[in-house]
Amino acid sequence: MLKPAAATVGQVILYAAFAAFVGYFATAPTYKQIPDDVALIKLSISHLGDRECRKRDPEELKKLPPNMRAPMDCPRGRSDIKLEVDIDGQPAFQTVMHPTGLYKDGISTVYKRFEVKAGTHQLSVRMNDNLVKPGFNFVKEAEVTLKPAQVMVIDFNPDRGGLFFK
């Protein structure tokens, strides 16, 4: 051990170093996740795929117990969902979303983040939630203008007409 005065000076220096270390790295260096002139497009869809139901004929219904005479015979599993996104006419993302659950009867989801330059962009989103049928049964196309750091969301809600941007 040093003499008390020298030891105290040393302690003060070490305490100050500790405070400087903690204080600095508690807020610095600053971090930029995206550049200043960039906006974000978030594609986030959570949707239950369609399924092919068959209408039961009267004879078939008659054979069933009275409490189980549902007019439609629907399989438990749900269809995969096909999704494509084009930005400014260029394919930006294509995927096939699979239903969750052991019996493939759950929702299909996708979450994807795109960084684009701020400004005007042509967006085109196409979705098919029943792959038994060809083509896309949901399409949304629009020209959007994004400010720097703006977050635009591509979502899906059947009650709002399907695909929508917000």
């Binding site: 610095a28 971090y31 996740q33 977050v151």
Partner: peptide
Amino acid sequence: LALAPVELRLDWFILFIHP
């Protein structure tokens, strides 16, 4: 949530995992 944070004063002891 309509805007993405641009410059962040990150706590590197706890939040280093994000960068």
